[in-house]
Design a protein around this nucleic acid. Structure first.
Lengths: 192, 192
DNA sequence: AAACAAACTTGATATAGATCAACGCTGACT
DNA sequence: AGTCAGCGTTGATCTATATCAAGTTTGTTT
């Protein structure tokens, strides 16, 4: 139940057996069926969640009702509306399960307790957030600099697995283009 | 020389006098004249820098030679090509001074020493990177969801100071639109 | 297996914003 | 004080991608 969890954390920091046992106590295990919501826009996001198995997406819905996927999270990733979670404000993102999933959830109060009692978790999350920043920076640059086709090709290169696991309309949404445009792009690419 | 520096760090974590003195020893002070480079694309980024005074921008230049501003950093902000700094890879960003500036710089080796010897700095940077993530998430959402005019209005609201301090062509670049478009947007807004 | 709803494709048309070009203003350096 | 480069404005045109619409394929539920 904590397999993926510990293997991911121990890649970045060391924990004693005692710390491991303590760490477990802060988390709640939950199963989600495909399409089930973990968070809905407008609620306060009460959990930071680690994906043990499955795949979730977090997205924002605009005035026209169009969904813009902000992040996919599968085995070994964390997901949450970070801003809502840490500031206890209303969430701007919705999170739901793309596949049946199993997650480990922690509340803000427990997160704070955890960083006090296991200070090395501050280091773990420092490294985690730092790596997240690289990715976000790349995406931001990509979204401003490249054409729709280049964005798709770059995603295909950097994240081939995603394309196999996620329906094309969600990929389009993640890239910030319409499904129609993505369909045409793929046709053009395969014609060459 | 470390005024802004300590006031910003002490907002987030506490330090003993001993830790403060030790912390200082890891940083190098540097003055930059307007237009002077702190980092050029293709180099490895050897420093993470805190801005004591002034204003820097970090940007990426595309194949057409167009600059895309990724981040402005003024008093109390950190700047670096994070990915290049932490992975010791070639930088994709260039950083230069928009105004005469004074900065405090730390190398990766010293950063690592610092987090070992003053573990609470892991916490400081965890919180810092976490806050950065909120902002990047917002910008990404904004860049995909909103029209050029909405992006501008949102920036004006959330960051009025920036508009006063930075030339309009850089604001356009930061928003991912052309200077011509921004000029037209402002005209439209003021006509109403 | 039938029936229905998603997901994907293809074509026609519309549009936001880019690009190209010319000109005026401002402020920095000689 | 004069000159020149950079910044901002405005207009005309172009283009990548969105939007709208219809049809096809795939997958899920009963």
């Amino acid at each position: 139940m904590f397999d993926v969890f510990f293997s991911h954390i121990l890649e970045k920091v060391s924990l004693t057996e005692r710390e491991k046992e303590l760490l477990k106590t802060y988390f709640t295990y939950k199963k989600l069926r495909k399409k089930q919501f973990l968070l809905e826009e407008g609620e306060v996001c009460h959990y930071l969640s680690f994906v043990e198995r499955g795949l979730l997406k977090s997205y924002n819905t605009d005035e026209k009702g169009i969904e813009h996927v902000s992040l996919f999270a599968w085995e070994g990733w964390w997901t949450s509306d970070l801003s809502s979670f840490f500031k206890e404000e209303k969430a701007i993102f919705t999170i739901d399960a793309v596949e049946d999933s199993e997650i480990l959830m922690i509340t803000l109060a427990d997160f704070e307790k955890m960083t006090i009692e296991i200070p090395v978790m501050d280091r773990y999350f420092r490294i985690l957030f730092q790596n997240s920043l690289f990715t976000k920076e790349q995406r931001l640059l990509s979204s401003v600099t490249y054409s729709a086709e280049e964005k798709y090709l770059r995603l295909a290169e950097s994240n081939a697995q995603l394309l196999l696991r996620v329906p094309q309309n969600l990929i389009a949404s993640y890239l910030g283009i319409t499904p129609e445009t993505l369909s045409r792009i793929k046709k053009n690419i395969s014609r060459r």
